[in-house]
Nucleic acid binder design. Structure first.
Lengths: 232, 232
DNA sequence: ACCTGAACACCGTTCAAGT
DNA sequence: ACCTGAACACCGTTCAAGT
């Protein structure tokens, strides 16, 4: 990591000396957000420090404050970057299929970038969450859900997606590989079963061992869609 | 605050001198968790620092580490304290009404203690979340939802409740009074409406101005229950 | 205008020293 | 055994000084 960032720094210096111009990757809000995503993906939420970020960008600690107000804005911008790619890609003709695709798209984005799940449920009025509201709202309109009911339906669906996002993200953070994840759930199920003799818990523990997060998430979307269309 | 904590310290000293015994409020995990709730309620999540907590307890910074492993455990224990009171109080005969009461109980607890909402969606395997899972699971069983479907239904409902919890908590954190909250939503709706001419957004902005968080949350629970019973 | 990096005002946690 | 508080290894953010 240190080796690599020194190497990048040397390349920049060469370019600057040769052309005698501004370095080609001069700081910009865009470049900073891109670097933020890189640092978050590589080292997780705890790894995103201003020191780590500015080292990755080969610049001084204060430099980023010329382009973003603070770390919170940085996290919101990085999250919007990822979510923007998801909401841009849902062009299905059938509104119900479009909603499913949107929800699963967000699930998969969080699987790839767990920090997105944590960030989404932290601040309701950030751009990324606004994007999700807007997407869900327009599909519900196309589905024929009328005005006031649409607000309730949208709220239910968005809150479900964000809630699941945060929970699954925490799991993905804890166990990176599939094997780790399975072992972790196994231990947890055993703990539950040992801790509490209640048949509900015994049953839940055995379900936990063999459950598939993505399938369970999909089933939840179906339940809400059923609830929405049943009262249309 | 400083005045008050000095006063408490002096009282303790008097008691100790007079009786020549251990001070009456000797540290214990229970007392520490109680103090944590007090500090969180008074100053919010950002206000809970080990320094503030140990000052409130009139003790040294390191003292709490004899009773809890770290700050994360402290937050989980404080959250479990609040959620435990909610799950203990739902004894309705009708399982559907019991689910509604549980969900609204958690909503109200978060309204009173916004930090609970944030904490609940941060760590899926903490005691407080386990409590919620267990409560929901047993009511769904009484509702007649069979094994595998019950896991999907439980996951959907818990994720919805936790997602809504985090979103509303963030709102409650930002605006304490009802008037503040209304003014804030007003400003936000105006920003949306100005920022984006899309009719979906215009419509959502006007809904936002007059919407009631608690009613919307309740509507979401209804949508979910409809979805569950429609496929039973 | 933009960047640098030392300085500031904080954190959570540890641990030798006390009782 | 339990508590104390200085010390440690960090944070995010600011700002005078540079280019």
């Amino acid at each position: 990591m240190d080796r690599r960032s020194n190497c990048v720094k040397m390349m920049d210096m060469t370019i600057r000396t040769a052309r005698n111009t501004r370095r080609s990757d001069a700081l910009s809000r865009e470049r900073i957000v891109e670097a933020t995503v890189e640092v978050l993906d590589a080292t997780g939420e705890a790894g995103l420090t201003v020191r780590a970020l500015t080292a990755h960008l080969s610049t001084g600690r204060g430099a980023i404050y010329h382009h973003v107000a603070n770390k919170e804005e940085l996290l919101a911008a990085a999250t919007d970057d990822i979510v923007g790619r998801v909401t841009a890609g849902t062009g299905d003709d059938d509104p119900e299929r479009a909603i499913r695709a949107l929800a699963l798209g967000i699930f998969d984005a969080i699987d790839a970038h767990p920090w997105v799940g944590t960030q989404l449920s932290r601040e309701p009025w950030q751009p990324a969450v606004f994007r999700i509201w807007k997407s869900v709202g327009s599909q519900l309109q196309r589905l024929g859900v009328p005005g006031p009911a649409r607000a309730d339906a949208g709220s239910a669906l968005v809150n479900y997606v964000l809630g699941a996002a945060a929970q699954y993200a925490a799991g993905a953070r804890r166990a990176t590989s599939d094997a780790d994840r399975k072992a972790y759930l196994e231990t947890l199920a055993a703990q539950w079963a040992q801790h509490d003799p209640d048949p509900i818990v015994q049953d839940a523990a055995s379900q936990l061992r063999e459950h598939d997060d993505r399938e369970q998430f999909r089933a939840g979307v179906d339940i809400f869609l059923t609830g929405i269309t049943a009262r249309r």
